[in-house]
Amino acid sequence: MNKVLFFAHLRDAVGEEFLKIDASGKTVAELKVELVRNYNLPKLDSVMTAVNEEFAQDDEVIQDGDEVAFIPPVSGG
């Protein structure tokens, strides 16, 4: 299983801080497509992904137990 975290407007859209999803074997891009299809999410094109707290590319394959987070453009500072 994988913990998938959402932040900012994505969290508002999903209505949860995180979901438990079996995403192992999927690429980041495939998971994005699945989430947009299954949840009321806006497009994830400009959203970065982190796997285990490091930025990941769309072709990275998710392993069982990985923590995935969707990172909208940041606005700290």
Partner: peptide
């Protein structure tokens, strides 16, 4: 400070008199 605005996963939500919105894009 410029790097914080590029790579650190922190977001701010603006609350105005008539609206609110997560900033970033």
């Amino acid at each position: 400070i410029e790097r914080i605005k590029e790579i650190v996963p922190i977001w701010k939500k603006e609350h105005w008199e008539d609206d609110e919105e997560w900033m970033g894009n």
